[in-house]
Design a binder for these strands. Structure first.
Lengths: 225, 225
DNA sequence: TGCAGCTTGGAACGTCGTTCCATCCGTGTC
DNA sequence: GACACGGATGGAACGACGTTCCAAGCTGCA
């Protein structure tokens, strides 16, 4: 319980909190030990006393945000819980755009870390409550998790300057326009759905897709008899 | 069609090819302009003449591998085509572990690049052939794509030293053991499925999940009447 | 043969993650 | 109440990276 030298003691908690703020403000690339040192009015060495390296720091920041996002999910019917978990992550990504990319990377790199079990538990509990036979629990849960992680990664809009809303519109419009100019023989499908993509609703699409995944699991494992 | 100074002319194609080899041999972090320069017996500046920056290089490497993987997918029943596309990507990730992480990042960052339309077309064509109403094409295709991308990201085993098979076993075992030691009150589900995860079959699980997603889309959009 | 411009290769710059170490200060000891 | 111990601090230093810049080389055309 020592507290050397400073009144605003440095701690892993305070460091992770500052890292999240820095990531929010300056994006993935903005998280540097120098910027973090300045924000905490200390030196890089002091930070390394509390955190092993940058990977661990990123992981801790990711887990802190995920834990906070999942904390608000209450109890309800399995399908509702799954929707709530998905939307909680979705909202968290809205607030912390760097989370989308981080989440997938974090979970595949260090599944023994805290984030993977956290998310697996949050998704697996309602999935098992859906009536899926226990032998299929892991596969069914993984299916939902893959969908959620994939959607998370794709919905991370990187731009952050100015109005996020305007950025998003311009971003989607640029992509849709590029799609419409593709070769008609090679990309008939992409050209045809470009318009749908230009004015789709992220959240609506995410929930619809999640419902489809749930429906698919139930179709393969009909509850009751 | 000029070819200054060297017989083994530098070209964007040769650079991308070397980048893929370097990524395969040394992993994500091993791709540096210095290492690439040495492998190509040239200087960094010469590479920058053909490639704008590292992001573009990574993107080109990703697209080259994806294009080659998808080239082998033939025509068949929609469900078979979807399975074939998924497995093609799965095999590509086995051969190029860095692809798992790259794919998701690449597609969200630059959807106007070549990779996003390529994959969207490969997945969207069979999805639309499933009998899904056109208004739902984009959502249904995105659902499958999210699942595939999420699975891709999670199945990228990073270790590459020695036998990949042994690495994988040790990796999964370490994670499963860590899961089994979690708090019983907070993580009942994770503890219970840890064993399933320890000896699951990646490819089998992926295909089963993909089938569930397809079944879900069909459940929401019944073909026929 | 000479010139113009595409292409090359490597030096140089600024920034990063990480290591190292001199210094500081709260705590326990006598 | 002095003193040493060791946990904690902060900043200098190192090596590697992405990128820029430029002098030089080579090729194709006049």
């Amino acid at each position: 319980m020592t507290r050397a030298r400073r009144s605003d003691a440095l701690s892993r908690e305070r460091i992770v909190e500052a890292a999240v703020e820095l990531l929010d403000a300056t994006g993935e690339a903005g998280l540097t030990f120098r910027a973090l040192s300045e924000r905490l009015s200390t030196g890089a060495g002091a930070i390394y006393w509390h955190v092993a390296n940058k990977d661990e720091l990123r992981g801790a920041a990711t887990d802190a945000v995920v834990a906070s996002a999942l904390a608000g999910v209450g109890a309800a019917a399995p399908r509702e819980v799954l929707r709530a978990v998905g939307l909680a992550l979705f909202d968290a990504i809205d607030e912390h755009p760097w989370l989308g990319t981080q989440l997938g990377a974090q979970m595949s790199r260090t599944p023994q870390g805290p984030t993977t079990p956290r998310l697996l538990e949050a998704i697996g509990r309602p999935v098992s409550a859906l009536g899926v036979p226990e032998a299929a629990w892991f596969t069914a849960t993984s299916t939902v998790m893959y969908y959620v992680l994939g959607a998370a990664g794709q919905n991370a809009v990187n731009g952050r300057a100015g109005s996020a809303e305007l950025d998003r519109t311009a971003f989607l419009d640029a992509a849709a326009t590029a799609w419409e100019e593709l070769d008609a023989d090679d990309y008939p499908f992409v050209r045809r759905v470009a318009a749908q993509m230009r004015d789709h609703d992220d959240q609506r699409q995410f929930v619809d897709g999640l419902d489809a995944v749930i429906a698919g699991i139930l179709a393969l494992h009909p509850p009751g008899r």
